[in-house]
């Protein structure tokens, strides 16, 4: 790239230190080249972003009917596991009590479920620390100290609302965009 350091060399042509036509031409050329390079680089950079076919796969429909209270299932959405958990009344009650507990990423339980469908907790099953899949979706797995999920990689504990309670993760398990299509069917994405 041309730079302003070259400008003093142009001075003899003009016989002074004032801005010359050559300086102007150099600047315009450099600016034009910069715009051109940018215009060429952007398609290369953007080609690495998710492509149309990847984006097209961005919704999943889940039938909730076979999931009984206390059970949880894992479904795939955008290549990621999503936890669909049918919470027991005790777990819901615990999550509500914990609204007043110590929360590193404060959020009310009511804000993490759909009104009237409090038994269904739907969260992305990716630890917000470094992306491992937490344990606890099967009742036989470790669920951590707060009865939700436990990430074995670096020891983050999540509660029955999927909120981070202890460990290095900075945020709660993400709630994906989803909507109920009837009583026992949801569409994620």
């Amino acid at each position: 790239m041309a730079d302003s350091a070259a400008a003093p060399q142009a001075a003899p042509h003009a016989g002074g230190a004032e801005v010359t036509k050559r300086d102007f031409l150099k600047l315009v050329t450099a600016a034009g080249a910069a715009v051109g390079v940018g215009a060429i680089v952007w398609p290369l950079v953007d080609s690495m972003n998710p492509s149309a076919d990847v984006l097209a796969l961005s919704s999943t429909t889940v039938d909730l009917a076979p999931v009984t209270a206390g059970q949880a299932i894992t479904v795939m959405w955008r290549g990621k596991p999503v936890f669909v958990r049918h919470r027991t009344p005790e777990e819901i009650a615990k999550a509500k009590v914990d609204d007043k507990g110590r929360l590193p990423d404060p959020a009310l339980d009511a804000a993490r479920v759909k009104p009237g469908k409090e038994q269904w907790l739907i969260v992305v099953g990716i630890c917000t620390h470094l992306g491992c899949v937490p344990l606890g979706n099967r009742s036989t797995e470790v669920r951590g100290e707060y009865g939700g999920w436990f990430c074995p990689c670096h020891g983050s504990h999540y509660d029955t609302s999927g909120r981070i309670r202890q460990g290095p993760a900075p945020a709660n398990l993400a709630v994906p965009p989803y909507a109920f299509e009837g009583d026992t069917k949801i569409k994620i994405g």
């Binding site: 690495m48 972003n49 998710p50 990847v54 961005s58 290549g79």
Partner: peptide, 10 residues
């Protein structure tokens, strides 16, 4: 997302 070219390593 840009590094992955998607929403997870794929």
């Amino acid at each position: 997302t840009w590094l992955w070219g998607g929403f997870s390593v794929d």
